[in-house]
Design a protein around this nucleic acid. Structure first.
Lengths: 191, 191
DNA sequence: GTCTATAAATGGATAGAC
DNA sequence: GTCTATCCATTTATAGAC
């Protein structure tokens, strides 16, 4: 049972990540230091290096965790036969995901941190997550790559505008349904 | 003619801003220091304080300059009677503006710099610029606020995806025309 | 695994001579 | 207006004792 120590180690890693997320939400994705993370978990900064090789390694773990959460979010959308229903549900889920944590969205969807690039593994997870999103759209016949690209642009655009220009409001949230209708009118006129 | 000195002062300010833009493009919006800006213009860092009160003051001037450029970009779009033509031109102009300088786009459209907020004046310029954009859309009958919001979300979404997921390519650029058609099909079915 | 101590660098900003 | 000198804070990261 050598797992005892390994499990504790993993738990502490998670605790550190949770503290980093909290700080990122409060002061911006790049607005926190290792000292502050250490304080938040009751450690001194150097001790963090037992769990992460560098600050960028923390960002990388956050990146990975964020895409894991997105994957779960996508998978949690109830399947539906009706394209309109499914599209609305997926769009809402993604929109909420994006808006509920703008710092996370900056990390996952924008290149905001100077010098940081996700590791190979993390990038692969991101790729798989977006691929899954494509599969969900494919399940209702949206399978042209251009259609998928158009859909992602539309939904990320709505969410990004909501965050930047009406934080806390619903000015762009209210446009999800009209957008879905607009999209469907083009992509599956039969429906 | 006390302008001599004032004009030189203004010219140096512009030179400093140009250096800051250059560094922002090369190393990311927040990936540069005052020392580096000073080096780039052949000064020492403290001398910059003759021209700007702080680093945030430089960001504020960049913010203002960026929206000024966007205003000019919008105004440079040839007026057209045909909605489809005008929408395509405005969308392309905005898309190019966004994609051609991602660091500028982060500054203007995303809240990326911890602790920085534009001054009252700069914010007012931003507001006026976006208002102008609304007027251009209004000139072809797109005047419902929801329609304008939907349009901005769509175009910023396309540009943002282009920058993040296919830098240097045209994967989302090719979707501008289809997007405009999709939008028009909804907003002015008569056309 | 956690600590103290400290390196080593960098950051923005100020004081004061010239 | 520009400089040198320097402050003072902060940062990430390492060394080594416990």
């Amino acid at each position: 049972m050598p797992d005892r120590r390994a499990r504790r180690h993993e738990a502490t890693r998670r605790e550190i990540l949770a503290a980093a997320w909290q700080l990122a939400r409060e002061r911006g994705l790049t607005g926190w230091s290792l000292r502050e993370v250490a304080d938040a978990v009751g450690m001194r900064a150097p001790s963090l290096y037992v769990y992460f090789d560098s600050k960028d390694a923390i960002y990388d773990a956050m990146f990975s965790q964020g895409y894991q959460q997105l994957l779960e979010t996508v998978d949690a959308v109830p399947s539906a036969e009706d394209p309109r229903t499914l599209l609305r549900d997926v769009a809402s889920a993604f929109f909420d995901f994006y808006v509920s944590d703008p710092a996370r969205s900056q990390l996952l969807f924008l290149r905001v941190i100077p010098g940081f690039a996700p590791s190979e593994d993390s990038y692969e997870l991101a790729r798989r997550t977006l691929e899954r999103l494509g599969e969900v759209l494919g399940s209702i016949g949206i399978d042209r790559p251009e259609a998928v690209d158009l859909w992602t642009a539309m939904v990320t655009g709505l969410a990004s505008q909501q965050v930047s220009n009406d934080p806390g409001g619903d000015r762009w949230a209210r446009l999800i349904e009209p957008s879905v209708d607009m999209f469907l009118a083009r992509e599956s006129p039969a429906a």
